[in-house]
């Protein structure tokens, strides 16, 4: 039983890391732009597709494939910011409109990928082999996801705390009015944040595709869990996204020991409901000034 617990802990941690990275991008965009980006899951999906294409048709090594995922995520996010957000956000009710524009973009992306590549799952090789820790066996790809995820999270923390751009992002998240007052180029920081979230989504897609396989629906699946994570963690809270993302991955894995996967989903939504009833601002959320 202990071995199974450890096994599921590693599996759950890797899955949870993907939730954390996707939820972090969502919550950063919410914190800085005050919008909900419905297309974020499709950026993850298209990043994963870019990785699959780079590996399959170009024969690129996996580390290059990861780079392709990042670049595809950034480019797509930039296009979404350009087409669906920049011109809309500052209008009256702009945030609500962006909800619809990003939803529309997510449908367009999904249908485009289904049309061009079909629904058949595609797979690529990531980091080969597996590692044994006593009776616990973990694929090296899962260990790689955990390691890269931790490195990326530490990097983001460093950038947000120590760099000019990081301080400007935090300042804008704290108060858009004050950010303008001190001379921050608010539009530029909004785009930078959106593109950075896209890079995270693209990277996560490329990290997870050797584990989950590629299909056009992977964006839908992860975005729903990421929304749950963001709401439970607290909208706009980076710490909430990371902690709750990893916790959700672990919870899914532990629940799978005792009951079918569908019950795990039901349990997660029950947790969401309870959180909204007891602590509507989420576990790490705070009232905004």
């Amino acid at each position: 039983m202990l071995d199974l617990f450890l096994q599921q802990s590693m599996n759950g941690f890797a899955q949870g890391m993907s939730y954390a990275l996707i939820a972090l991008g969502l919550t950063m965009v919410f914190g800085v732009l005050h919008i909900i980006n419905f297309a974020h899951g499709e950026v993850y999906m298209v990043g994963a597709l870019g990785a699959v294409l780079a590996a399959t048709y170009l024969g690129a090594p996996y580390f290059v494939v990861l780079g392709v995922g990042i670049v595809v995520g950034m480019a797509l996010a930039w296009l979404i910011a350009l087409a669906g957000i920049g011109k809309v956000l500052d209008r009256k009710d702009g945030s609500s409109t962006v909800l619809l524009t990003t939803f529309a973009i997510s449908i367009i992306l999904y249908e485009a990928v289904v049309t061009f590549f079909g629904p058949t799952p595609l797979r690529i090789e990531g980091i080969p082999g597996r590692s044994e820790f006593g009776q616990t066996v973990v694929t090296n790809q899962r260990l790689f996801v955990i390691a890269v995820g931790l490195f990326v999270l530490a990097g983001i923390e460093f950038v947000l705390r120590r760099s000019d751009i990081g301080r400007q992002i935090r300042a804008l998240a704290s108060s858009a009015f004050a950010a303008q007052v001190v001379g921050i180029n608010v539009e530029r920081i909004r785009v930078v944040t959106f593109v950075a979230a896209g890079a995270l989504a693209g990277l996560t897609g490329a990290l997870m595709v050797p584990i989950t396989l590629f299909s056009p629906t992977i964006g839908h699946s992860i975005i729903i869990n990421a929304f749950v994570v963001v709401v439970i963690g607290g909208m706009g809270s980076a710490a909430g996204a990371v902690v709750c993302g990893i916790a959700l991955g672990l919870l899914e894995a532990y629940v799978a020991i005792f009951m079918p996967q569908q019950f795990a989903s039901a349990l997660i939504y029950a947790l969401l409901l309870v959180t909204l009833l007891i602590r509507p601002k989420g576990l790490f959320g705070r009232a905004r000034a």
Binding site: R167, R170, A171, S174, S175, F177, A178, Q180, V181, V182, G183, I184, N185, V186, A289
Partner: peptide, 28 residues
């Protein structure tokens, strides 16, 4: 000109209600 360009031009505002970045340190 946009606000950040006006700041670059040499204008600064200490706004009513202070609007400091509450979660950031004094130095930040």
């Amino acid at each position: 000109l946009k606000s950040h360009q006006r700041v670059s031009a040499g204008i600064a505002l200490s706004p009513e209600g202070r609007h400091v970045f509450a979660d950031m340190s004094v130095k930040e």
